[in-house]
Design a binder for these strands. Structure first.
Length: 379
DNA sequence: AAATCGGGGCT
DNA sequence: AGCCCAGATTT
């Protein structure tokens, strides 16, 4: 005997398949029995919900887990967030990606301190005015933290709804998302809006999954679902396919003298803005070309050691990288070349806990702790 | 409306 | 190798 049968037979008598009004009752019952325990669900204060929702944008739950508690421990409230140095923010976000999220998080914290007396606003409209908060996050915070009946429509919800209704519209289009938000507004239960929104996403993430076959046999909404009726679940949702990636070739330089290594802070705008990286050259360069480049920048090269090739894939770009570990005689005093002017010199050991370096350079960050095999007596 | 912005896990 | 993820902002 199906444990949802009772609900579903009731529901079937009242609503046609595909009618969103049939969703809340079986969905919430399922959620009460199947919800995951997540750190930000324990004490859903506005600040905790907000931070978690920003971290979760385009990011899986499992990826966020190790970041969330550390962030809350370091910056326990909005005031602390508003005052944190950018380095601290980026270090807390290092490896999570989309680094503008954390800068916008701080901008919003400052807005809240200045315009709202340090208290997170509770209405959908006021939340929307905050940097980094769009329709999804405004709906999530207002419903989960404040119990307001606003829908929170993310990729999960769009997929679940598309399947239930056999909706062919392209979910990448803004107007489709807006329409779904409007439709859910009519349906969202006023007594449990936060649970409803989380349950829709939970169903999408755990049952009505995007890659591979969804687990329809355990779905509390299968009797409502038009796609399940003719087993066409995997044809939905309709989504525009991703643009092709461009490939970029780079040569990464790990430059060291006896004590220091070289890093470079990326520009404030664009890809990986404000993150630290190793100096690099465009294209695949030979050891001779690297040596020539470094000589132009006022360095005396003692040894060049090739490192393994590496590849890093972004959403819309690929980096194919060669790397060299380079030993030079002395770094710090020399600032003569065209590029070396904005190099910074750091102790390799402090790199790991002071400078945020994106995952793209993970294969070469190891080079900081490697020995160069040049006996000190040589100098 | 389209482009930009990360990183990782799964098929 | 391709897809997608508790999206938002900029162009």
């Amino acid at each position: 005997m199906d444990k949802y049968n009772e609900n579903l037979t009731d529901v079937k008598e009242i609503f046609r398949k595909g009618d969103l009004r049939a969703i809340p009752k079986p969905l919430l019952k399922w959620y009460d029995n199947n919800r995951r325990i997540l750190p930000w669900r324990e004490q859903p204060t506005p600040y905790r919900v907000w931070v978690s929702e920003i971290m979760l944008q385009q990011t899986r739950v499992e990826a966020v887990k190790p970041y969330f508690q550390r962030f809350m421990d370091t910056l326990p409230d909005i005031a602390a967030l508003a005052e944190a140095p950018e380095e601290t923010l980026l270090k807390l976000w290092e490896g999570l990606g989309y680094y503008n999220r954390v800068r916008n998080l701080q901008k919003a914290a400052i807005q809240i301190m200045e315009d709202y007396g340090g208290r997170m606003p509770d209405s959908y409209e006021e939340l929307l005015k905050l940097k980094g908060i769009g329709s999804y996050t405004a709906g999530a915070v207002s419903s989960i933290a404040y119990g307001k009946p606003n829908p929170a429509v993310d990729g999960n919800v769009l997929r679940v709804i598309a399947r239930i209704r056999k909706d062919d519209r392209c979910i990448s289009e803004d107007k489709v998302k807006k329409a779904v938000e409007k439709d859910l507004w009519e349906v969202i239960p006023k007594d449990r809006p936060g649970d409803f929104n989380q349950a829709m996403m939970e169903i999408g993430a755990c049952v009505c999954i995007p890659n591979g076959a969804p687990h329809c046999e355990e779905c509390p909404l299968r009797q409502i679902c038009l796609a399940y009726e003719d087993r066409t679940q995997q044809q939905y949702p309709n989504k525009a396919k991703a643009k092709e990636r461009t490939i970029e070739e780079k040569t990464i330089l790990i430059i060291r003298d006896a004590e220091l290594a070289v890093l470079h802070k990326r520009p404030a705008k664009g890809l990986l803005a404000g993150m630290y990286e190793f100096p690099s050259m465009k294209g695949f360069c030979t050891a001779e070309e690297v040596k020539e480049y470094l000589t132009e920048n006022g360095l005396q090269v003692l040894r060049i050691q090739p490192l393994e090739d590496a590849k890093h894939i972004f959403s819309h770009r690929e980096w194919h990288m060669k790397g060299y570990l380079i030993r030079v005689d002395e770094l710090a005093p020399k600032k003569v070349g065209p590029d070396s002017a904005d190099w910074i010199y750091i102790e390799p050991r402090e790199t790991q806990d002071r400078y945020p370096i994106p995952s793209a350079f993970a294969a070469y960050a190891k080079g900081l702790s490697m020995q160069l095999g040049i006996p000190r007596t040589m100098f």
